[in-house]
Amino acid sequence: MHTPVVDVAPVTPPVPADRPAGRNHGLDALRVAAICGVVAIHVFGEIVGNREMRGNTQWWIATAIDLGVVWCVPVFIMISGALILSPRAHAAGPAEFYRKRFARILPAMIFWHVVYLVLVRMMMHGERPGPGRLAVNFLDARVYTALYFLWLIAGLYLIAPVLAAFLRDGGERRAKIIAGVAVLWSVGAYMTPGVAAMLGEGRPITLGAWNIWFPYVGFFLAGWALRKVVPSPRGIALAALVAVVVQAEVVWQYGVRPDYPWLQAVFPVTASGLATTIGSGCLFVVALGLGARWTVSERGGRRLKQLSDASFGVFLIHMLVFEVVMRFVPAVAQGTSLAWSAGAYVVVLVTAFALSIVAGKIPYLRAVV
């Protein structure tokens, strides 16, 4: 199970009266944690997907890491919604919004689809997909692993002006109600295939390049609806505890799902599953609360911002770095060694951050990271 990242930026929620307004470093930190989670899912996912390793200690540790950070997808969408649905982002009208947003994402979509299709699939893997297969891959948003998320965020950009206008005219109450309804709708929709299968009637959800964004509209709206939440220290602790408990349940459920098929059917272990939805919302609120209370030095704030801003590039680059690592370390590619995978994780993460930061300073390259 692979979960990529979107091009998002932190938004600053209101802070207590005794604190000056400024960038919310809690969301910066959450964004960095989320991209670290994305890399972990792809690296340790090789062990999780190895049936011969299933059930042993190494497999359980890898599963705890992999499934324990599945919240990273909803969290990135929520951070994105908190910024993109702001009236200020749409003040110049839809045309200007589209120009700015798609000028950012389209070059990255084109460049990285070519890179992963030609360099990875064709040159490194030796694939020779025909025109028909390529067309299907593009329609299904499956040219390469996590690149489907670029189509997802493009879809959310497309509907953002409509959502922003609807929210602007309804106040905070409307935002919370519509976000809650949309999130519950997606949770319910993802329960349907499993329940139908248990009843002997298959009803799969089919998503492709043009509708893959739909299940995430609720998280997009929730980011805006929750942006002003600043919980008390006790509230932060409670939200953090709930997040840990529900993610532990996700790990346990994935590990025992062959024995409890009904549990997976009713409460699927997906980014839009009930447990992950709850955990993601709690982590988002924790980040808002901590960010409103943290005092970060100017130097520390600049470094955290740099890492946060580099996360989109890390998402795009890390899969290429991981492909190179797997070619030289068979134990990582085969998912047979937790130690080698842990080492690979550090190498991939550090290398991807370094390349993203450097590329962000180079003309033309910074347009695609």
Rank of each mutant, 00 (worst) to 15 (best):
A331M: 10
F138Y: 13
C36W: 11
D28S: 15
E46D: 03
L117C: 04
R227Q: 12
A135W: 13
T63Q: 01
F267I: 14
L158R: 09
N24E: 06
T206R: 08
S341Q: 10
I205H: 10
V321I: 15
R133Q: 15
V246E: 03
G26P: 07
E127S: 02
W60D: 08
R173V: 12
I159S: 02
G281K: 05
L207I: 02
L106M: 15
A271E: 12
M191A: 06
A154V: 05
K228Y: 00
V39Y: 07
L288F: 03
P193Q: 02
G132H: 09
A135D: 01
L163S: 01
A182Q: 04
L320S: 00
I110G: 05
L316W: 05
A243Q: 06
F44Y: 11
G313A: 08
H125Q: 13
A339Y: 10
F44H: 01
A154L: 10
G45T: 01
T295I: 11
S308A: 13
F328G: 00
G301C: 07
L338E: 03
G208Y: 04
F138G: 06
V350I: 04
V368C: 04
V183T: 06
R302I: 00
S297Y: 05
A175M: 09
P14Q: 08
A209D: 03
R303H: 14
L263H: 05
G68P: 13
L274E: 00
T276E: 03
V75Q: 13
G289H: 05
S80H: 08
P74Q: 09
P233H: 06
V38E: 01
R104T: 15
D140H: 12
W185S: 07
W224G: 10
A179Y: 03
G126M: 09
A21G: 11
G81I: 06
L30N: 01
I362F: 08
V347M: 14
A197L: 12
A197K: 12
L288S: 15
Y116K: 07
F138N: 00
F166I: 12
A354G: 04
A342F: 02
M319Y: 05
V229L: 14
A34M: 11
I110A: 15
V32D: 10
P161H: 07
P233D: 15
W185Q: 02
A344V: 06
N50C: 10
I61F: 11
A9R: 14
L349D: 10
A182S: 13
V358G: 11
A354S: 08
G49H: 11
V324C: 09
G55W: 05
A62I: 04
P363Q: 07
A165P: 02
A339V: 15
